[in-house]
Design a protein around this nucleic acid. Structure first.
Lengths: 145, 145
DNA sequence: CACTAACACTTAGTACACTAACTATTAGGG
DNA sequence: CCCTAATAGTTAGTGTACTAAGTGTTAGTG
């Protein structure tokens, strides 16, 4: 394996590019989510619930690759924002049943505009973004082995 | 612009893939950095200093794309770990001169192994990682306009 | 040369994100 | 059936990240 003369050169570190890109793209979402009182991680939880609900904390965690300890306070904030309900599942009292409220469901229609605005702001082609998504998926798959 | 039938589908969101990939790759670094008492953001600060030092907080912030408010406590932790010194610049007392200690400089030789271990752990080809880096750089450039 | 604006960093406050330890509930084996 | 192990969430503690407000220093202008 050859990583060149300086394996520690900052401008060649994939990990650095990943974290900067992640923070930079999240920064694009910030002004779009702020009117709804949402952060980007909270928005991702709503995407998961819009896909399927109700679901348990464990289920959401496996989908978003988050520890339950990260989700627990986040879901409480989403509850106090009025987008989500939390109650113990009757069948198994260990599980928490996280569901959307009316407001949470209504928000979806508004949110549909967001991806278009983000892609527009980025000014990149759909093809390029899809290629990037594929590359990122391979990295994620690689870390999961 | 056409984002398909469901623009909010989680498995097609670049922002989601970016944040998961970022966290997953950082998780690979964790056991490699832990013996040195370092976190990944702290490691990136050291990469910046190994490239050039001493430098100011502002300078490091521009390189790593971080707010001074993020760096300020981080640099104090690096100082108490013994890798870095912090002192006001004589020429301009507003600026902080961040420099490497002997231990900070010595650590570089140890750290040179890390990129190889990460690439090995990922099990991806150098070519694929370089292509990903290019794609991420284009995203970062797009967010900077 | 005083005075205000700009600059560099720090502090406070909120929200992730992770590890480790804890609580409550359910399931399984003797 | 009891009792232990496994499971699902929560809490505590540390360390980013970001915005906004604050402090001290320098620079630029009347």
């Amino acid at each position: 394996m050859d990583l060149g003369p300086d394996p520690l050169a900052l401008d060649r570190q994939v990990c650095f590019a990943l974290s900067v890109a992640s923070r930079s793209v999240i920064a694009i979402y910030r002004p779009l989510l702020e009117p709804h009182g949402l952060t980007h991680p909270q928005y991702l939880v709503l995407l998961a619930l819009w896909q399927s609900s109700p679901r348990s904390v464990r289920d959401i965690g496996e989908t978003l690759r988050h520890e339950p300890a990260t989700l627990s306070p986040m879901l409480k904030r989403l509850e106090s924002l009025g987008y989500v309900t939390r109650r113990r599942a009757r069948a198994d009292e260990r599980q928490l049943e996280v569901d959307l409220t009316g407001a949470g469901r209504t928000l979806r229609a508004e949110a549909e505009k967001i991806p278009y605005r983000v892609v527009e702001k980025l000014g990149m082609s759909i093809e390029e973004l899809e290629a990037l998504h594929k590359a990122l998926s391979r990295v994620i798959a690689a870390t999961e082995r």
